[in-house]
Design a protein around this nucleic acid. Sequence first.
DNA 1: TATTGTTATACTCTATAACTATA
DNA 2: TATAGTTATAGAGTATAACAATA
Lengths: 146, 146
Amino acid sequence: MTYANEVPADTVLASELRTTVMRLARRLRNQRTDDSLSLSQIATLGTLSRHGALTPSELAAHERVQPPSMTRLLAKLEEAGLVSRTDHPTDGRQVLVAVSDKGLAMIKADRRRRDAWLAQRMRDLPTEDVAVLHRASEILGRIAEG
Amino acid sequence: MTYANEVPADTVLASELRTTVMRLARRLRNQRTDDSLSLSQIATLGTLSRHGALTPSELAAHERVQPPSMTRLLAKLEEAGLVSRTDHPTDGRQVLVAVSDKGLAMIKADRRRRDAWLAQRMRDLPTEDVAVLHRASEILGRIAEG
DNA sequence: TATTGTTATACTCTATAACTATA
DNA sequence: TATAGTTATAGAGTATAACAATA
């Protein structure tokens, strides 16, 4: 028996859900393929693979990092052959950064590994729970976006 | 009416779910109250508030950090008046670290703010979706723990 | 003059290695 | 000797400030 006036139901669920999401995110984060790349570097590669070529400034804004930090980060990625720079077609100040094939392969390997860990755990679940997670994924996705 | 066959295979759902969880975690992380504390410091305070007083070594192991890093982190927290050290009752080598009232208040404020953000978003959801999230939270919690 | 990107420099966080005190 | 904790030092990542090139 619950008393809505005592504890707002939404707040309790929100609290539980936050704890759960953060804990699961930590587990997923630890499933990284390659310790040689930092989280920011992996995130940047991921952004490039989703958005296509972007300028360093756009990348910095997207990853919430200052431009000089992105400059250094990209230097590392370029040195590792994971991205390439090309001059902007019309604006001589700008540069376009794109993922290389090698970078793309690395992202995919990384994703595959994380997916595998989670997929294995879902195989142990009853079908009903999988269905719940499927619906929850959509709902949470909208929340995360909004 | 549901068709088990229509539900995407485990790997597809795992991939979607991972993306969603990571994105949501990022949003929740950005709801931090106090930028003056690092994520490790907040996590350490949280651990102390859940487990009670612990030694620096125990904390280092729990937070997956090396002992010297924990020494420095605790020095900052103590300087800010968020934790206190007391001598171990029987072993003169050990030290016990506990959260102060101020530390506890900070943790609670931090949690409240994150919960508020998520709770607000859940108030916009239909009751049915809230129920799904409630069930999903339990399932995901078990996955994260296991 | 404003914007894009880089270089110079400093700060934070974490690590390994070496040291001190206690068991 | 072994363990708990700290200090010394180094490396990675990111920040702000100053600079160069282009619009």
